[in-house]
Write a protein that binds this DNA or RNA. Structure first.
Length: 390
DNA sequence: GCGGAGATGGACC
DNA sequence: CTAACGGGTCCATCTCCGC
């Protein structure tokens, strides 16, 4: 059964939302920033609109560099307000969710959207059924989505359409902003051949460096490369995945995924190796995580402490307990993990610290299970229904 | 050999 | 003149250990 998948990607989302929020900014170059607070312009760029990109400003860039590029050009630098962006995002996701196919989960399961939000500004939609296998009607669905987002939120997005998530993703990237790119099965090979291997989804700076050594430049080079050799260099799993990627092959289903972990990080006001200092920060982060856990009704088994030192080297320490757990317990463990770390790394100054919880479950103690965990017979009382055998 | 636990690295937004 | 640098998530892999 061939699929038709849409990848919807909001255009420079944070910056665009800020532009709407403050009419005085209309038409200007806008950069949203995560200020770390340790010095005036310490931190990184989280988003830059297209006017700002024309100046060479990119997300992930240190704010100081962005400001140098922006010198005298009237660029607006704003602090990121992620809570607000999440609100706007959830309205957009509500629009998108309704455009995806529906499917029944399990035997008598509830209706579920074939929809997958991948980040605050991106989502995949499976529209195979709605479009009845017609690329033209998939294109109409995409156009209608773009129209709705523009009408309701006054924002633009770029949409890629393809036979799987990978192709849809690469397609949405191909034309931005406000783009719509359709790559049907018969066009996948030609479309991928034009893409440099380093630009493929899942290929970052490290992998690109190895490609260079191997003489792999284009996706075609990678697609035609000896699989055994790739697997020898990258490991069997990654080698295989890389070659599939270069060929536009991907069978990953569109489905909503449960969070596997929740973490919070913060930059210290000053580099430090003082447990008291650091623990103070971790305490705040743990409180925040605790709130989110409570609101989601989740329990966890594993706590990790993450440290990033002055050379930006990251290390982690984690511990798994029988069952979670209160905030205070969480903090006790974090404290021990941190103390272990500091003992084992005397003199190492930390720049940032974080805490992470994972290994989630919904059940409280041993017994209480969710409905889905119960065997069928006791799922519900059917005695009021007419008997099958009657 | 297999699983979980723990640590690390790479990638993406 | 150079270096400058957030926060969050997912996944794979390696090692170690008990079974």
């Amino acid at each position: 059964m061939p699929r038709i998948i849409l990848h919807v990607d909001m255009d420079s989302f944070y910056a665009s939302v800020e532009e709407l929020r403050n009419p005085g900014l209309k038409g200007r170059a806008i950069v949203t920033c995560m200020f770390s607070g340790r010095s005036k312009d310490s931190g990184a760029v989280s988003a830059a609109n297209y006017k700002a990109r024309e100046l060479g400003i990119r997300s992930g860039m240190p704010i100081k560099i962005a400001k140098r590029l922006a010198k005298g050009k009237g660029v607006a630098f704003l602090p990121s307000d992620r809570e607000y962006y999440r609100e706007v995002s959830s309205r957009i996701m509500d629009i998108l969710r309704r455009e995806a196919d529906e499917k029944r989960e399990g035997v008598r399961g509830r209706l579920q959207s074939m929809f997958e939000q991948v980040s605050v500004d991106e989502a995949y939609l499976d529209v195979s059924r709605r479009s009845e296998g017609s690329w033209d009607s998939a294109r109409e669905i995409a156009e209608s989505i773009k129209r709705k987002i523009r009408e309701k939120e006054n924002l633009t997005c770029s949409i890629g359409i393809g036979p799987n998530k990978l192709v849809a993703k690469m397609a949405s990237r191909a034309q931005k902003p406000d783009g719509l790119t359709l790559v049907k099965d018969s066009e996948v090979q030609g479309f991928f051949e034009k893409i440099p291997a380093a630009k493929l989804f899942g290929v970052g700076p490290q992998t690109a460096k190895v490609f260079e050594k191997l003489g792999i430049k284009t996706s075609k080079d990678l697609a035609d490369y000896d699989l055994k050799k790739l697997e020898a260099v990258f490991g069997s799993k990654k080698g295989r995945v890389l070659q599939d990627t270069a060929r536009g092959i991907d069978n990953d289903p569109v489905e909503e995924r449960e969070a596997q972990q929740i973490s919070r990080m913060a930059t210290l006001k000053k580099d430090s190796d003082n447990p008291k200092d650091i623990l103070e920060n971790i305490r705040e982060l743990a409180r925040d995580i605790d709130l989110e856990l409570k609101s989601k009704g989740l329990f966890y088994r594993t706590v990790s402490v993450i440290t990033i030192d002055t050379h930006l080297q990251m290390q982690t320490r984690s511990r798994t307990t029988i069952e979670s757990s209160s905030l205070s317990k969480n903090l006790d463990i974090a404290k021990e993990l941190l103390e272990d770390f500091l003992e084992q790394n005397p003199g190492r100054m930390l720049r940032r610290v974080g805490i992470r919880v994972s290994g989630f479950s919904r059940k409280k103690e041993k017994k209480q299970r969710t409905l889905g965990d119960f065997p069928k017979e006791i799922e519900c009382d059917k005695s009021h229904l007419p008997s099958k055998n009657a």
